[in-house]
Design a binder for these strands. Structure first.
Length: 353
DNA sequence: CACACGTGGCT
DNA sequence: TAGCCAAGTGT
């Protein structure tokens, strides 16, 4: 009989009896586990589930993914957010196909080196797919352990995370790291919730320091967050006949690789009369024939660190041969749906075109 | 190493 | 409403 403390035994029993039936829990394929872990970064199961299904159907294995154009992959990712996840995953798929003919690495150090895979995801893949003894540390695990041990330092800085990693390493059940890691995360997702945790039915209640000291509501401790800044985006929706101008977004800003419209960004809310005087507007239209057809109301789009305030100026252009800004191209309305676009743009398009 | 990076649901 | 949160990583 392998030694295991009572806490771990109770946790594993609870997991066995209560775990959700999720598609990535019915496989040991590293590709599918990798995909699920990338999708679930900062993302709820309910939001990622359909994306996972569609992704596996479109790209059943790493070779299929590696062969896909980036635009198609981003289109499949559209609406899920954090698009660097999709770009990095494609990069890594191509990397693995080229270097090892598609064979996913087994050693933690080799997994950890892959682009888009950090400490958490490397430990998750190593333990879930290969049952190797690496302790995962995600938001769930940090919350569970900080409450269990009465950890009162902030968890959202490198120092706090490092201490919690030591706790996680120490608690890990090395005989069954796959189930143990997942049990801990499932407990965090189902019972040990950030607000209104279900302590009454928690299998670890009698071991929980925070519960004993009535501190569940104040643990884990987090540092105060900074205020969101605003960005004012004035989009030029330029149409001529059955074509519309799209812009591919590039490095160094949000939504890299996705498409939106030519944009005049201002430091505050701007009127069209102001926009038409800007050098950007002048360099596009100059004295060329064009007609402002409509100006949308203000669209508010919330990101983690930014509030975007967007208006859309719909313009009929008489000159399809005009000089477009860098990264812009004419796209037929028929093909518009094949381009990956941010949610903000998707909302505008579905309401106006 | 603080900050950037999306989106939607819940309080 | 405004803020918080959800299976983090890259720079």
């Amino acid at each position: 009989m392998i030694y295991m403390d009572k806490r771990a035994a109770k946790l594993l029993k609870w997991y066995d009896e209560n775990k959700r039936d999720l598609p990535w829990r019915n496989t040991k394929e590293p590709y599918q586990i990798w995909l699920s872990e990338i999708i679930l970064q900062q993302t709820r199961v309910s939001q990622g589930l359909d994306y996972y299904r569609r992704f596996v159907e479109s790209y059943p294995d790493i070779h299929a993914l590696a062969a896909a154009p980036e635009r198609d992959v981003l289109k499949l990712w559209q609406g899920l957010g954090y698009y660097s996840r999709a770009r990095n995953m494609l990069h890594t798929a191509r990397d693995i196909v080229q270097r090892t003919d598609g064979v996913f690495p087994v050693k933690y150090e080799d997994i950890r080196r892959l682009k888009g895979i950090g400490n958490y995801t490397a430990a998750a893949i190593a333990s879930f797919a290969y049952n190797q003894p690496y302790a995962v540390l995600d938001g769930n695990v940090m919350r569970v352990y900080s409450r269990l041990t009465g950890f009162t330092e902030p968890i959202d800085n490198p120092k706090g995370r490092k201490k919690l990693q030591h706790i996680a390493d120490e608690f890990l059940v090395k005989e069954n790291p796959s189930d143990y890691n997942q049990a801990l995360m499932e407990l965090g997702a189902m019972l040990c919730l950030p607000k209104n945790p279900r302590c009454a039915i928690c299998p670890l209640q009698i071991y929980c320091s925070a519960y004993a000291t009535h501190s569940v509501g104040v643990i884990p401790v987090k540092q105060a967050k900074k205020q969101k800044k605003k960005r004012f985006l004035n989009y030029l929706v330029i149409q001529s006949g059955d074509k519309i101008v799209l812009r591919k977004r590039t490095r160094g800003d949000i939504w890299q690789g996705l498409y939106d419209f030519p944009c005049i960004e201002t430091t505050s809310s701007a009127k069209v009369a102001y926009l038409t005087e800007t050098s950007q507007w002048q360099s596009i239209f100059g004295r060329k024939k064009h007609a402002i057809e409509a100006v949308s109301g203000e669209y508010r789009h919330i990101l983690t660190h930014r509030t975007l305030l967007a208006t859309f100026v719909k313009i009929q252009s008489g000159d399809k041969a005009m000089i477009l800004p860098e990264g812009c191209e004419w796209v037929s309305l028929r093909k518009l749906h094949t381009f990956p676009v941010p949610r903000l743009i998707d909302r505008y398009l579905s309401a106006n075109l």
